[in-house]
């Protein structure tokens, strides 16, 4: 039996530095609802469960099909995409929505994940091509290589893995699992590999690979099932070999 009403408890915060508060809402159930469609209903009638007028809730979303990563938030305490959080799959009782805790809040459920994009700069997450003019096909790849790389290239910078990583927080320098996995991706590409040392240099210092405590929370949280711990292990090998090489060359 589908529920008749949906109750939501939403943690709201008007500004990055302001205090936060809970607001409750009740909505009539409709078929195929998800958390986003609930938030859309609220803005059509922004009134709390207690009958108080309020402002529409602020949140981020775009694709609504779990490929853009925008709508990540804590749904019933767990980091996930709210667009695939279907109401009918939730346990009874109110649904709680909170912003991610590892990133600064912009407003309500929207946070600022800029550090993740900056980290992609630090680790040089790209294939350094000569230019965009017509230079013929790229290197051949086996189907097996393609499949391995494809898994990593689906990372949508959503931040779930960062949220659950005990080593990643505003007080530490650790760049976190998602950008590290991109090093794994680009170091495997036949052209990207030519600059592997630059990426390894970037992750061998403070805030790099050594800061990972190997807690493995990240891999469980990734909605795209990206083999993060496998990547971390592989990078461990690459950095060790690179370190030894540097030592012998001295």
């Amino acid at each position: 039996m589908p529920r008749q009403n949906i109750e939501l408890r939403i943690r709201r915060q008007d500004s990055p530095t302001g205090p936060s508060r809970w607001e409750e809402f009740v909505l009539p159930w409709q078929p195929s609802m998800n958390v986003i469609s609930c938030l859309m209903e609220i803005r059509k009638n922004p009134v709390t469960k207690q009958g108080q007028k309020t402002t529409p809730v602020n949140w981020e979303s775009s694709c609504l099909e779990e490929v853009c990563g925008a709508c990540t938030m804590l749904v019933n305490g767990k980091p996930r995409q709210s667009c695939t959080a279907l109401v009918d799959n939730m346990p009874d009782g109110p649904i709680t929505l909170e912003p991610l805790t590892k990133f600064p809040v912009v407003r309500d459920l929207q946070v600022d994940r800029k550090p993740m994009f900056e980290a992609l700069k630090i680790v040089k997450a790209w294939v350094p091509i000569d230019g965009t003019y017509d230079l013929g096909p790229g290197p051949k790849l086996s189907q097996a290589e393609q499949e391995t790389s494809y898994a990593f290239s689906r990372c949508m910078t959503c931040g779930c893995c960062m949220e659950v990583c005990p080593q990643y927080n505003t007080r530490s320098d650790f760049i976190g699992p998602a950008p590290l996995a991109q090093v794994r991706l680009f170091n495997a590409h036949p052209t990207g590999r030519m600059n592997a040392h630059e990426r390894l240099d970037a992750i061998m210092g403070r805030g790099g690979l050594v800061d990972c405590g190997n807690a493995q929370n990240c891999v469980e949280a990734c909605p795209k099932e990206i083999p993060l711990t496998e990547a971390l292990g592989e990078l461990g090998k690459q950095t060790t070999v690179y370190w030894l090489k540097n030592l012998l060359n001295k």
Binding site: W126, V127, I129, T132, D134, L135, G136, P137, G138, Q146, S149, Y150, S153, F186, H189, T191, G192
Partner: peptide
């Protein structure tokens, strides 16, 4: 081909 060179996992 350009995307192929950029590393798209086609």
């Amino acid at each position: 081909y350009l995307f192929d060179r950029m590393g798209v996992t086609f």
